[in-house]
């Protein structure tokens, strides 16, 4: 019964929180309205959700987000330096293929998003069997080092989170 009423508990909680943020005040009436939406929306959209994401260690996910936010700031300074102070002829772009050990779609999505937001790299495409990811780097002299950084810094941590 409870399982049928809340097919996605995490989605329901997120919906209530977002509703509070949208109306920008916390009252009982808005809790009721948000709670109603949190029950109806997951039931209506349930056919489009393939499965529940399994987060093994939510606390590690929090640490991961902090690391990524810090890296975003550093990445921005890096990219700004390249754009402003480097001549176009000196910018050496490369394609890098990163083999993946992650298997769950949520983890791969998170990794692809992280790659796009961090230093000078953009994830463009997966292979058909989701076994590797195609990354474009704005400027690097050592494409292999970029691949190793992505694997050790982000993928290893995500593997722990989604263990």
């Amino acid at each position: 019964m409870l399982r049928r009423l809340f097919p996605h508990p995490l989605l329901s909680v997120t919906l209530v929180l977002i509703w509070f943020a949208l109306v920008n005040k916390v009252t009982l009436g808005h809790l009721l309205l948000g709670g109603f939406l949190a029950i109806v929306v997951p039931i209506v959209t349930a056919p489009y959700w393939p499965g529940r994401p399994r987060v093994g260690r939510p606390l590690k996910l929090f640490g991961y987000v902090l690391i990524v936010l810090w890296d975003i700031v550093l990445a921005n300074i890096d990219v700004a330096k390249i754009i402003l102070f480097r001549k176009n002829e000196d910018i050496r772009s490369h394609w890098v293929v990163v083999p993946l050990e992650l298997t769950s779609p949520e983890a791969i999505t998170l990794l692809a998003g992280t790659i796009t937001m961090t230093p000078g790299t953009i994830s463009t495409m997966l292979s058909a069997d989701a076994g590797c990811i195609l990354v474009h780097t704005l400027h690097t002299d050592d494409p292999d080092a970029v691949r190793d950084t992505i694997k050790s810094r982000y993928e290893a941590r995500l593997k722990e989170v989604f263990a």
């Binding site: 293929v97 495409m125 292979s127 058909a128 076994g131």
Partner: peptide, 16 residues
């Protein structure tokens, strides 16, 4: 484009 490391090609050309 560079080759993939696995047996399958890139998602835009090959079916999963």
């Amino acid at each position: 484009l560079p080759d993939t490391t696995g047996a399958h090609g890139w998602a835009i050309y090959d079916k999963p």
